[in-house]
Design a protein around this nucleic acid. Structure first.
Lengths: 241, 241
DNA sequence: AAGTGGTCTAGACCACGCG
DNA sequence: GCGTGGTCTAGACCACTTC
């Protein structure tokens, strides 16, 4: 496909050129889903290169989900994926700073206690650190955070002074994690939440719940309740990554 | 370790074994962020294989964001990434069906008109198809959808009978897209929205706005307003993909 | 049985960026 | 400079699947 900025087959590495070309045909629809792309030996001949070179490209595209490969049969353009997007969930601190606003943080409560019945079942029988804190932007309450940290998984958290450091930032830099699940919903502010966030009772808020695992251990569970009028999440997606 | 144990070790391809081993050291924290991992020639010697083999592994890990590579300096364990997640945004139809509920769809309004001042600026000067529709689950209103489709980008949309087919499903299967941006927020139901969704005015709703591009053209812009009490988004992430 | 992709080798030259 | 990663080659054998 003609591209405005193309012009020259620049000094791009060969495999990048090949990848761009194939990706282009797929994304433009010239090679529709189910289309059998040329065999490796055909691409090898077409580009006049070694098989390893095209193999790396096709393997990478397969890894990215654009192509499915079947031995003996060939490689095929994958069916359109579901709408999906990479949702960036940065530190609230970084987020606020990035907007050019002043970040404020306040520890509201801290308790070390055994997990009880109101807590997520994964913590049952463990000792947890319970934290409640408030994030502010330009002095205004932005989000209320309620967090449990498993002291079995992260014993060193017991020694940290979270009065100065937001727990999210600390955990992000001190505890490797392997998996996380987020649940995003809208809810009406309860009386208690409304008072802390300084909004009317019943005001729409954005709730972000996250559980983070390290291997099979749950490291932390957190719920952040944002003022709906001050916050939104943005997710952007392009097939290339 | 000695590399002469070939009879015993798993039948996994060598590069998978190498990758698993390195990933393990990173995720376990044995190689913390900033750690300089062995040079390629060292890994080559350690595993007794060709340089291409370890290169492919390290390059893949770099592509996955676990490792950063700097010429002359070496390869380093990347700083923990920002929290990010793959947010799956399936068809509402599929979503509802997947929950075992009955999906209902209703076209409320359809207009073909030039884009005006209230529309996103990207449509200015174009003709658009404006659709309003309602998604139901088990008969109850679930989401109100307001959508603009660029007829310059998707002229065939003018001929489609969206009284039977939800526009999201149709677009997903007929128009390739290269990029999408989502904005997720919480809002209070306006009088009008509340009436359609059959909730009280001011009820918390989850708003999902999405713009979809094909190359540089905006294909469609849509806002879906979900009843906050009936819907949430789930995003799950693991570094491996 | 034949042909595909999956994997691997043992070299090579180059570009870049630290010392 | 010089050592790192970046890229590429021209082969090879194997496993699997479809024919």
């Amino acid at each position: 496909m003609a591209d405005a900025t193309e012009g020259e087959t620049a000094q791009l590495p060969l495999h990048q050129r090949i990848r761009a070309e194939i990706e282009g045909k797929i994304l433009s629809g010239e090679w529709p889903p189910g289309y059998r792309i040329p065999f490796e030996h055909e691409l090898t001949a077409h580009y006049g290169c070694a098989r390893m070179t095209v193999n790396k490209v096709i393997a990478a595209l397969a890894g990215a989900g654009l192509i499915e490969r079947r031995r003996r049969a060939g490689s095929f353009v994958a069916q359109p994926r579901l709408q999906s997007a990479v949702l960036e969930i940065p530190d609230i601190q970084q987020e606020v700073a990035g907007r050019g606003e002043t970040y404020g943080y306040e520890l509201i409560g801290r308790r070390r206690r055994p997990a009880g019945e109101d807590d997520p079942a994964v913590f049952t029988g463990q000792e947890v650190l319970e934290l409640r804190c408030l994030h502010r932007a330009n002095g205004r309450p932005l989000a209320l955070e309620e967090r449990l940290i498993s002291l079995a998984s992260v014993p060193e958290a017991a020694e940290v002074d979270f009065a100065a450091t937001p727990p999210g930032s600390w955990l992000l830099h001190h505890v490797p994690w392997t998996e996380a699940e987020h649940r995003i919903s809208a809810l009406a502010a309860s009386t208690k939440v409304a008072a802390i966030l300084e909004v009317a009772k019943g005001a729409a808020c954005l709730s972000l719940e996250r559980r983070t695992w390290r291997a099979t251990e749950t490291v932390t569970a957190v719920r952040q309740i944002f003022r709906g009028d001050l916050y939104h999440l943005v997710a952007r997606f392009s097939p290339q990554g």
